Amino acid sequence: MKTTDKIIQLLKVHGPLTAKTLAEELALTTMGVRQHLQALEDTGDVDIEDRVEGRGRPTRYWTLTEQSRVHFADRHEELTVQLIDSVRMIFGDQGLNKLIDHREQSALIQYRAAMVGATDIPTRLAILVQLRSNEGYMATMEQIGGIYFLLENHCPICAAATKCLNFCRSELQLFQQLFNDIAVVSREEHIIEGARRCAYKIEVITLK
């Protein structure tokens, strides 16, 4: 195990520690540990916390950041798939679809509340991009001529969507409902089908 990994493990188990304490635990020099801590700070995995402990200069402690979570095992995808299997087994496909529909309607209420007063595509889309980014989709928007695109560069529910494509169907329907009074929404790229991202085209409704 690399020294940086050992430091992360120690901070996870013991909480904030000083460079001196880490050095003693790892049988390294304090200077050597500080170099590893600096590397971890550069990658955003650790942060510093200066504490006043009696007289003299504050004591510097090192603590993990939210970013450091990527270094630890996360079985949420496995759990999600297990839950989908359980819902399908107990309640059948109809029960699973009801769950997905409920998720869609809850999101629709939340998104529409955030879009109150947004009457044009760019404003509404900008709000949607922020909402989706907050949920982990790494969303961006583009405009090519008079056509707009919602681009989602990551899918935090990929495991669930792979197991049950109705999650993807539901999300497309959600976007269509959000713009149904001013635009037509279609999916042009799909991560589940091997694309690098999910891309949704948003076109102004043309009156005939």
Rank of each mutant, 00 (worst) to 15 (best):
L37D: 03
T140N: 03
D181W: 00
V116K: 10
M89Q: 15
R60Y: 00
L125S: 01
T140P: 00
Y148K: 02
V13I: 14
E203K: 14
V33R: 04
F91W: 11
M31S: 12
E53R: 03
T162L: 15
E189Q: 12
G136E: 03
Q94L: 11
R132I: 06
E24G: 05
I202E: 05
C168M: 07
L22V: 04
T162V: 11
D85V: 00
F149A: 07
I127A: 02
A23E: 03
I90V: 15
E142Y: 01
I121V: 14
T4N: 11
T65A: 13
K163M: 05
L165T: 14
T18P: 06
E78R: 09
N134D: 13
L79D: 08
T206S: 14
E171F: 04
A107N: 05
E189N: 05
A195E: 13
W62M: 03
F167L: 11
V184I: 12
L165D: 09
V129S: 09
F72T: 07
E66T: 06
A107G: 00
I8M: 09
V116E: 14
I121L: 06
T119P: 00
A195V: 08
L172M: 09
N97Y: 04
E49F: 12
R51D: 03
M115I: 05
L125H: 01
D120R: 12
K98I: 05
M115Q: 11
N180R: 06
T4D: 14
I144P: 01
L96V: 05
T43N: 01
G194T: 10
G54V: 07
F179D: 06
L26C: 06
S86K: 12
G95V: 09
S106L: 12
I84H: 08
E142R: 09
P122V: 07
R57P: 00
Y137W: 15
I90F: 09
A159P: 05
F179R: 00
K6Y: 05
T123Y: 03
V185E: 02
I192Y: 08
R196T: 14
A159L: 08
A199H: 01
G15P: 13
L64G: 06
L10Q: 06
C198H: 00
L28N: 02
E188C: 10
E193Y: 10
M89R: 15
K20F: 10
L10S: 02
